[in-house]
Design a protein around this nucleic acid. Sequence first.
DNA 1: GAAAAACTACCGGAAATGCGGTAGAAGGCT
DNA 2: AGCCTTCTACCGCATTTCCGGTAGTTTTTC
Lengths: 209, 209
Amino acid sequence: MISILIIDDHPLVQDGIKTMLKAVPSVEVIGACKSGGEALEFLATVEPDVILLDINLPDMDGLVLCEKIRERYAKVKIIGLTSINEVGMITGLLQRGGNGYLLKNMERAELLQAIEKVMAGNVYLSEDANVKVLEQYKSFDEGKAPVLTRREKEILLSLANGLSGPVIAKELVLSELTIQTHRKNLFRKFDVHNVQSLLKVARDLGFLK
Amino acid sequence: MISILIIDDHPLVQDGIKTMLKAVPSVEVIGACKSGGEALEFLATVEPDVILLDINLPDMDGLVLCEKIRERYAKVKIIGLTSINEVGMITGLLQRGGNGYLLKNMERAELLQAIEKVMAGNVYLSEDANVKVLEQYKSFDEGKAPVLTRREKEILLSLANGLSGPVIAKELVLSELTIQTHRKNLFRKFDVHNVQSLLKVARDLGFLK
DNA sequence: GAAAAACTACCGGAAATGCGGTAGAAGGCT
DNA sequence: AGCCTTCTACCGCATTTCCGGTAGTTTTTC
């Protein structure tokens, strides 16, 4: 019996996966969490064989959560879940101990295949994801998605909404110099040299819209 | 008995919705289609009471499909579904005969409420969607889509690709001062005061990607 | 062929961004 | 307690953007 934990804040996705797996006798969904915090709590009591992990969680970066889980539970298999426009996250996930990757438009058969494959110790990448990973490597040097802090995400979003440094400083009640520092750090993490490029790359990697 | 048709290319979402509605005796899912073409075929044989329509379909623009369905079947209620909280989609859907709007991170209760509401002849908008609609109306009142010249479009695109003024000047073999003038004119036309805002507004109005 | 629009280029000055650092305080994790 | 990360804030300096004009030369349009 293979035990599964779902981590996804969409009830729709939770229900969908449960339904897909209900008819399979060798697989059992033992839990479903809506946030990273909830998931870590759950894992403290029961350790599943496979985790289906949504990359976009409300309280925590999915990549960070993956890293944390991998540190603490070496044996568990982690399969990332995401929609097509966030495929830039794939390399990031694999670098942080992910065992596979599924797009949310998957078929039931593909889900089962992925579970089988990671349980056998292999990495599973969905067809579509595979293609995109290659494109990604081609178009971006190293094409890896960095981990952003809470503040950095906040400021990235403000920049995407067209706000300038001084305006953001006023809104967040911070020194303009502080905003400049965060902006600089964002530049470094994304390897860009102006805000436009920052927004373009962040968008391409799935951090925006 | 209220009959439902699901139009969504994600099996996950189809299964999720079916599960959510399975326990409700007054509602029945009579079909699930993965594309616009399939949906139109289905509708030629059976007409449901409510259609749950994903805006992002593989073969057809969800808005166009909504329009088509509304033309042919005046009585059916159409509820839009989308994962991205995209500006423009909501008003676009309502203008094309949509009766409501749900985000895919909805709870079961919200889905039921939406179905009830549209069946009673009302429009249902999810909380989050509601806020966005208001924002939308505000920004539309202030500025409508301007007409751009060839050069302006070219430079807008370069800016969206992250290029700075001097770089664009070199690429187009023009004076940097000329680029500045075009950029200034773009600012005026879109009523913005920096490149980030320019790109955001241009994107929202459909000039980019 | 004339008028209108678009494209090009300039000036001067204020404001913001970008670049390379440093550094203390606060909070989390082990 | 000690380490690490994050958040905050600063300095100096160069570059770029932004704002308000003006203006000559094409190209398009009527």
